[in-house]
C-alpha cells in the first residue's frame, strides 16, 4: 500500500529549493564546451584547405575531446535523472515546446557530426591509429574526396554546436519559477562562455605542445611518451595566437552578455532585481566576482592580451583559468538561480 502524503510535507507540493547538485552544472559546462568545440571545428573545416596542419588541433583533437566530454556530460545528466530507467522514453517523442526534448535530440545528432569531423583528418593526426585500423584511412579519404560532404559536415557542426550551446542556457531560462534564470540572454551567454572554454582548451593543448624549451618543462616527459605512442605529427603552434585572440573575443562578448544579463534583471521587476542582488551584493557575490569575473574572465583576458602583444610568453594559465571560470559560472548560476524565488514568504 502506498500512503500518499497530501499535506505540505510532500516535497512535490512544497518544492525543495536546491534539488540540483553538481551534476547539472557539470553537464551544462561540458555541453557548452562541446558546443564551442563543434563551432570551432566546423568553421576550421570550412575555411581551411585540407592537409593544413592547423587543422589537426581544431578539427581532430577538438572533436575527439568533444566526443569524450559529451559522453561524460550525458552521464552526469543521467545521474541526475529521477527515473533512470525511463530515459529511453525521451526518444519516443518530439515535443516542439519542450527544451528537454530539443536537447535530447540535439545530443543524439551531435555524436555523428562530431565523429565525421574527427574522422576527416584522423589518419594524419594520429598515424599509429591509422596503421592499426586501415578503415580509418578509407573513411577519411571518402570524406575528404567529397567537397560537398566536407561542406555539409562543417555547416552541421557549426549549426549543431550553436544549438547545443544556446540550449544549455535556454534549459535554465524556461524554468519560470526561478526569477534569476528568466532572461533570454542566458542562451547566448552560455554559448559564448562555451566558445571561450573551447578555444581555451585548444589553446592550452597548443601551449603544452610548443617546441621544447618554450613549453612548460613538466610537459616534456608526458609529451615525449605520448608522441612515441601515437607517432603524431607535432601540432602547428601558429594556431595558438589565433585561438588566443579568438578566446579574447569570446570572453569580451561573454562579459558584455553577463553585463546585459545583470542589467536586464536590475531594471526589471523587484523580484528580478532581488534575484540579481544575489550575484551583485548577496551571498553569491564574492564567488561570482572573484572566481567568474576576476579569475575566469578578467585575468585570462589580460594575460592573453599580453601574450598577443608579445609582452609575456604563452602559458597554460589563461586556458586553465577560462575553463575554471566557465565551470564556476555555471555552478554559481545554477546554485544562485535555485536560491532566487518569486515570493520571499517561501523563504
Amino acid at each position: 500500500m502506498t500512503e500518499l502524503t497530501y499535506t505540505r510535507h510532500n516535497p512535490l507540493i512544497d518544492p525543495i529549493f536546491h534539488v540540483w547538485e553538481w551534476q547539472i552544472p557539470v553537464y551544462l559546462f561540458l555541453g557548452g564546451l562541446v558546443g564551442g568545440l563543434m563551432i570551432i571545428a566546423g568553421i576550421r573545416l570550412l575555411v581551411l584547405r585540407p592537409n593544413r596542419r592547423e587543422a589537426l588541433v581544431c578539427c581532430t583533437l577538438g572533436p575527439l575531446i568533444g566526443l569524450a566530454a559529451l559522453s561524460l556530460g550525458m552521464f552526469s545528466l543521467f545521474l541526475d535523472l529521477g527515473h533512470k530507467l525511463h530515459v529511453w522514453r525521451l526518444y519516443t517523442t518530439f515535443q516542439v515546446t519542450s527544451p528537454m526534448s530539443w536537447g535530447s535530440w540535439i545530443l543524439l545528432l551531435v555524436y555523428p557530426a562530431l565523429a565525421a569531423n574527427a574522422l576527416a583528418h584522423l589518419p594524419e593526426a594520429i598515424p599509429a591509429l591509422a596503421s592499426r585500423f586501415p578503415a580509418l584511412v578509407k573513411i577519411s579519404d571518402f570524406i575528404l574526396a567529397r567537397p560537398r560532404l566536407v561542406l555539409f559536415a562543417g555547416l552541421t557542426n557549426t549549426a549543431l554546436g550553436a544549438a547545443l550551446g544556446i540550449y544549455t542556457g535556454i534549459l535554465l531560462s524556461t524554468l519560470g519559477g526561478r526569477p534569476l534564470w528568466n532572461s533570454a540572454v542566458l542562451g547566448p551567454l552560455f554559448l559564448f562562455s562555451g566558445l571561450s572554454t573551447a578555444a581555451a582548451l585548444l589553446h592550452g593543448i597548443l601551449v603544452l605542445t610548443m617546441p621544447s624549451g618554450e613549453r612548460p618543462a613538466f610537459a616534456d616527459f608526458l609529451l615525449s611518451a605520448l608522441a612515441r605512442m601515437t607517432q603524431a605529427r607535432p601540432l602547428d603552434p601558429a594556431a595558438a595566437p589565433i585561438l588566443a585572440s579568438a578566446d579574447n573575443s569570446f570572453l569580451t562578448v561573454e562579459v558584455s552578455l553577463l553585463g546585459l544579463f545583470l542589467l536586464g534583471h536590475v531594471t526589471s521587476t523587484a523580484v528580478h532585481h532581488r534575484a540579481a542582488g544575489l550575484l551583485l551584493t548577496g551571498p553569491y557575490a564574492a564567488p561570482f566576482w572573484v572566481l567568474v569575473v576576476g579569475l575566469g574572465i578578467a585575468m585570462p583576458l589580460l594575460l592573453q592580451t599580453l601574450e598577443l602583444a608579445h609582452r609575456i610568453r604563452h602559458t597554460l594559465a589563461p586556458s586553465l583559468l577560462v575553463m575554471f571560470g566557465g565551470f564556476a559560472l555555471r555552478v554559481i548560476l545554477v546554485s544562485a538561480g535555485q536560491a532566487s524565488r518569486w515570493f520571499e514568504a517561501l523563504n
Binding site: 609582452r311 609575456i312 610568453r313 602559458t315
Partner: peptide, 20 residues
C-alpha cells in the same frame, strides 16, 4: 587567491615564469 594571481602576473611580466 589574489596573492597567487598577482604573483603570477608579476612573474609573467618579468619573464620569470619557470618550472624548476
Amino acid at each position: 587567491l589574489g596573492v597567487f594571481a598577482g604573483g603570477f602576473l608579476s612573474a609573467a611580466l618579468g619573464h620569470r615564469l619557470r618550472f624548476f
